[in-house]
C-alpha cells in the first residue's frame, strides 16, 4: 500500500486524521492551560532576562515556547537558541550580506 499511497499523494503526514490529531493535541492543552498570546510573549521576554543573567546572547524573539500534551501531565517546552558570537566566520549568509555591504 505504501507506494500506492505515495503515488496518490496520500502520505501519512498529509492525511487529515493526522492533521486533526496534531491540531487537537495543541488546542486542548491551550484550552486547559489558558495561556494567551500576550502572556506567552511576556513569558518569553522574562525568560530571556533570567537566562541572560547566566548565559550571554539570548534574544527573546528567538525563543520558541510551546505547550505539549503528555499522558499524565502537560508540558511547557522552551527552546532557547544561544547565538554564537563572534560569528564563527564564513557561513553562507554572512558572506552574502558582506558582499551586499561592500557595494
Amino acid at each position: 500500500m505504501g507506494f500506492l499511497d505515495n503515488l496518490f499523494g496520500n502520505n501519512k503526514r498529509d492525511r487529515s486524521a493526522q492533521v486533526a490529531k496534531e491540531r487537537l493535541l495543541t488546542v486542548l492543552v491551550h484550552d486547559r492551560v489558558k495561556l494567551t498570546p500576550d502572556m506567552l510573549e511576556q513569558l518569553k521576554i522574562e525568560l530571556s532576562e533570567v537566562i541572560a543573567r547566566y548565559v550571554p546572547n539570548v534574544n527573546p524573539s528567538e525563543i520558541d515556547v510551546s505547550l505539549l500534551r503528555g499522558d499524565s501531565s502537560d508540558h511547557l517546552k522552551a527552546d532557547v537558541p544561544l547565538r554564537r558570537t563572534p560569528p564563527t566566520g564564513g557561513n553562507e549568509s554572512d558572506r552574502a550580506s558582506a558582499r551586499f555591504d561592500s557595494r
Binding site: R15, S16, A17, Q18, D71
Partner: peptide
C-alpha cells in the same frame, strides 16, 4: 472506511487524546 484511509481519527487516537 474513512479511518482506514486516514481521513478520520481512529478509536485509539481519540482515546489517546482524551485520556
Amino acid at each position: 472506511r474513512l479511518v482506514s484511509r486516514g481521513e478520520m481519527l481512529s478509536v485509539d487516537e481519540v482515546v489517546e487524546i482524551l485520556a
